[in-house]
Design a protein around this nucleic acid. Structure first.
Lengths: 139, 139
DNA sequence: ACCAGAGCTTAGACTCTGTCTAAGTCAATC
DNA sequence: GATTGACTTAGACAGAGTCTAAGCTCTGGT
């Protein structure tokens, strides 16, 4: 993700301060931020950046495959900068934190033809749920 | 799900016309309805039933483990009456239809301890995405 | 059968995410 | 440096879901 700006420029992106800031925020911490959290962090670096621009930019990054959208609950979408290494997610039911995980085995291969109903299956998403160490002891 | 009302009464549920209607709607068709669709179908049988009651009742059914919440996109949650048989979901990226599927293999077993970060992992949710036969030919 | 009151239901206001719009601004090219 | 279309902005809007305050009603006790 370090040469992200280069890659984006190569794809014909007009390079603006706003887009640079959003990219930097995602590049900075390797966590799963909501659009709003990205916005809050972006505002620190560029106070006049608007919510709409953050949404737009995140959407573009997703379309370009540079960032992944993660939907673990009905609350906000989260954005995962780790788009270039396939992985799944482990979510804490208590505090909502998300970790990337790499299970062995291929769930796609585990779906027999008879269970595909003629679908062209292209993707699997696996979400593990549980309690993180902190929430497990508190609860 | 046929003796659902019995079970609910056994758990101390006060039996009201509204709850009966919501349970009947879920019992009726084995599809994955949104809360709003449940409401629309419920209104046919009991015109004065309110949206809030449908939401409340669905929430209670989920808490009791009689119904599963399915979140496949950023749109509405869907409710799956098939809560007593473990299964996963296959979602069409085109039209959004959902089918229950039963993969072989256990994704929970595929998550090594080293990838659990001390979490007490209790549940996995697998969502296959693809195109249904109709959408695959149209697209 | 009747009463009391906890529990349920209601309408509508509210919140939270996210999208859209119209007007203004600016990066990249000439 | 001027031009222009892409980008950004503020704020209005929309969809899904939650909350609240007031009123009803189911159920258990008399």
């Amino acid at each position: 993700m370090s040469d992200l700006l280069e890659r984006l420029r190569g794809r014909g992106w007009r390079m603006t301060a706003q887009r640079r800031v959003v990219a930097e925020v995602l590049d900075g911490e390797h966590v799963h931020l909501t659009a709003d959290e990205v916005h809050m962090r972006a505002v620190v670096k560029l106070p006049e950046i608007s919510r709409a621009t953050v949404y737009n930019t995140l959407g573009e990054l997703v379309t370009l495959g540079e960032v992944l959208e993660v939907t673990t609950d009905r609350r906000a979408k989260r954005y995962d900068p780790n788009a270039h290494r396939p992985h799944h997610h482990l979510v804490c039911a208590g505090c909502g934190q998300i970790r990337d995980v790499h299970p062995s085995g291929d769930p796609l291969a585990d779906l027999p033809d008879s269970e595909r109903f003629g679908f062209k299956v292209s993707d699997v998403e696996v979400t593990y749920r549980g309690l993180c160490p902190t929430c497990a002891t508190t609860a």
